[in-house]
Nucleic acid binder design. Sequence first.
DNA 1: TAGATTGTTAATCGATTAACAATC
DNA 2: TAGATTGTTAATCGATTAACAATC
Lengths: 212, 212
Amino acid sequence: MIKGKDGSNIPKVVIERIPRYYRYFDWLDGQAEKISSKKLGELMDTSASQVRLDLSYFGDFGQQGYGYNVKKLKRELGNILDINTKKQVIIIGAGNIGRALTRFNAIKEAGFDLMALFDVKPILIGERISDVEIHHIEELPSYLDTHEISIAVLAVPKQVANDVARVLLEHGVKGILNFSRTDLEVPKEFPIENIHIIDKILALAFIIKSNV
Amino acid sequence: MIKGKDGSNIPKVVIERIPRYYRYFDWLDGQAEKISSKKLGELMDTSASQVRLDLSYFGDFGQQGYGYNVKKLKRELGNILDINTKKQVIIIGAGNIGRALTRFNAIKEAGFDLMALFDVKPILIGERISDVEIHHIEELPSYLDTHEISIAVLAVPKQVANDVARVLLEHGVKGILNFSRTDLEVPKEFPIENIHIIDKILALAFIIKSNV
DNA sequence: TAGATTGTTAATCGATTAACAATC
DNA sequence: TAGATTGTTAATCGATTAACAATC
């Protein structure tokens, strides 16, 4: 469990919301000097209470009678999310998703340093996408042993996702962003974020169908 | 609110879990004839109670003393998710993400029919990606008026996301899968699913940092 | 039949919202 | 000073888990 300002546990739901707060303060920057929890709640379509309680897990960022200073909060949330520290990332799978993410500038702008791509197809090895070289998947263990990699993005077919995940864990990767269409079998506390695109579009289609 | 088998409201969290159940029954198909809520709960890392309660919103699919028949449940969940009906989809934005999704076969396999891509860049117009033609964004309103489009995938820069979303709503799109890095301002009940890739990787990085 | 396991209701847990003293 | 608004605690709401009668 992750601890907040005075040793209190921060609920997972709150952690998942922090990037969204950052987005709003980033957007507010230049638009306003300060904002109250009430107004921010309206903007974000949540309650003032939730805004105040969420932020209070991380620090006392506001001021009575004034609200939250936009520049300050953007800076504080940026620090919490470690925006300014380069975090080294590799992508496994140079298919559609892997390539798109490699070219995706927003990832670099958020402080992530794309180090390498890995794929199994011999024809791809040595190719460069946005200056990132594709290596053969067999080189993955030795690459991980000689580089300090924080995050691996998994964009491989579901059939091999767990095999790759095992190698990643064994060789010291700290967390996985999983785009493959399966749930990874990793120890309970190992950091994983799943992006299940098909699950999302199926849920959307179900909601639409039920709306008739 | 979406109603279940006897008029009861199905919580949003349950709806979002249904595609995951489908994945597990799809995977179990061929591996086993039947499965109990207890075993499925273990497999999915949740409780037997949750499995039973979730599924019971949609029907009485199990049998005492036996469990759930895998083939039957795969079929039932497939029907619920409308896997077998073609749903017509367009993608707005022929950048990295839009192109990757167009080439992404899993979307077609899940019953979605990619009809067209739209972009603002003149140089792209007329190009075909996986047999899907790129149209100019100005043609979007008339295209929507002459085609029955269920879902639009929004993969455009955040600065224009809400402008595009407005056109989509005005011209009868039923739901949006949003990849743009902003929250769309749409009526509360309009079906939206957000895939905020940057939010996910930032949350992951935060969890990793806090794990030290 | 006896054991297994469902669907459902009740109990518990956790997350959200409301209330309010503190204070800028 | 008076009004505004915070951070926090208490009350409420909703989701998860436990319990169990029904029954295959």
